[in-house]
Amino acid sequence: MSRSIHQRYQREFWPAMVAYMAIMFLLWPLLPQVHSELLKIALAVLPVVPVLFVVRAMVRLVLGSDELEQRIHLIGLAIAATVVSTLSLAGGFLAAAGVLKLDGAILIWVWPTLVVVYAAGRSWASRRYGGSDVMCNNGIAWHWRLLFAALGFAGIAGLGRHQLLDYQLGMLCGMSAALAGWALVLAVLRWRRRHGRHETL
């Protein structure tokens, strides 16, 4: 992948993600105070707008990739679709049987889960073809990015613990822990690859 395509992706992706986080933590908490049904609907679906810009950035990245990179993206997407749809099906059956009590808010987690599993599947496919992660072969390693994001979420949770609603605080803590855990996994895998390479020399 050319550096210019990767840089364009970064320029398009991160502002959209910042806008998404700003909407979720600054505007979404106002929903209970909104009494107009039309305004409540508009505010409820407002986070979808920056998500569409994220999807656009990802599509443009894939279209600008070569055939091997496109194949790697396709494998990652296939893995993500399989995992998330299977988990959704299992969760639906458990909820229908009364084993789990789920409400509609669980749907908010479908897209983030799809993205995380897609990234993991894409990384696995990239290593299978003998390369590095096609979206992160420039700049800072993924485990450092995830760790910085985890620290950012933990910082927001710490600073806003008295103002945030319980579900927001729980979401931030959960996201921080998940990102930190994933960063640790990637760091260990990277260390093992490097350590194994040194042993073979």
Results as ranks from 00 to 15, higher is better:
residue 110 V to Q: 09
residue 106 I to S: 09
residue 78 A to I: 06
residue 121 G to D: 00
residue 90 A to S: 13
residue 102 L to T: 12
residue 82 T to K: 11
residue 109 W to V: 00
residue 54 V to G: 00
residue 39 L to C: 03
residue 42 A to F: 13
residue 97 A to R: 00
residue 60 R to W: 00
residue 43 L to M: 05
residue 110 V to C: 07
residue 80 A to N: 03
residue 124 W to R: 09
residue 72 I to Y: 01
residue 50 P to F: 00
residue 109 W to K: 00
residue 100 L to S: 12
residue 94 L to Y: 11
residue 119 A to S: 11
residue 100 L to E: 12
residue 38 L to H: 02
residue 113 T to S: 14
residue 122 R to M: 13
residue 91 G to I: 11
residue 117 V to I: 13
residue 38 L to I: 04
residue 110 V to Y: 14
residue 68 L to C: 00
residue 70 Q to A: 04
residue 89 L to E: 01
residue 77 L to M: 13
residue 112 P to S: 07
residue 109 W to T: 05
residue 108 I to Y: 08
residue 37 E to D: 10
residue 45 V to A: 06
residue 121 G to R: 06
residue 55 V to K: 02
residue 64 G to F: 03
residue 124 W to N: 09
residue 93 F to S: 07
residue 101 K to R: 12
residue 51 V to F: 06
residue 43 L to P: 02
residue 113 T to C: 08
residue 106 I to L: 13
residue 89 L to A: 12
residue 82 T to P: 01
residue 72 I to M: 04
residue 114 L to P: 01
residue 106 I to H: 14
residue 57 A to R: 04
residue 36 S to A: 02
residue 122 R to Q: 13
residue 45 V to C: 03
residue 97 A to L: 08
residue 50 P to M: 01
residue 41 I to S: 06
residue 95 A to P: 08
residue 89 L to Y: 10
residue 60 R to I: 00
residue 63 L to R: 15
residue 63 L to A: 11
residue 100 L to V: 12
residue 97 A to K: 03
residue 47 P to L: 04
residue 108 I to F: 14
residue 88 S to I: 13
residue 70 Q to K: 12
residue 72 I to V: 09
residue 105 A to I: 11
residue 103 D to F: 03
residue 86 T to H: 10
residue 120 A to S: 09
residue 104 G to S: 15
residue 67 E to N: 04
residue 44 A to T: 14
residue 118 Y to M: 02
residue 37 E to M: 05
residue 57 A to S: 02
residue 97 A to M: 09
residue 68 L to V: 07
residue 107 L to D: 04
residue 96 A to L: 10
residue 43 L to T: 02
residue 86 T to G: 09
residue 82 T to G: 13
residue 47 P to R: 02
residue 56 R to Y: 05
residue 50 P to D: 01
residue 55 V to I: 15
residue 36 S to I: 03
residue 58 M to Q: 08
residue 93 F to A: 09
residue 102 L to V: 12
residue 108 I to G: 08
residue 100 L to K: 06
residue 73 H to M: 08
residue 48 V to F: 08
residue 111 W to P: 03
residue 72 I to F: 01
residue 97 A to N: 09
residue 60 R to V: 00
residue 119 A to W: 14
residue 107 L to F: 15
residue 116 V to R: 02
residue 56 R to A: 04
residue 68 L to D: 08
residue 89 L to M: 15
residue 90 A to E: 10
residue 85 S to T: 15
residue 39 L to W: 06
residue 66 D to Q: 11
residue 87 L to N: 09
residue 80 A to H: 09
residue 121 G to A: 02
residue 109 W to R: 00
residue 55 V to W: 14
residue 36 S to N: 11
residue 109 W to H: 06
residue 77 L to D: 04
residue 94 L to H: 05
residue 96 A to F: 14
residue 38 L to S: 13
residue 92 G to K: 05
residue 105 A to P: 01
residue 87 L to S: 08
residue 82 T to Y: 12
residue 94 L to C: 05
residue 39 L to Q: 04
residue 71 R to S: 06
residue 39 L to E: 02
residue 95 A to R: 09
residue 99 V to H: 13
residue 74 L to M: 10
residue 115 V to Q: 01
residue 124 W to S: 08
residue 53 F to M: 06
residue 52 L to G: 14
residue 42 A to I: 00
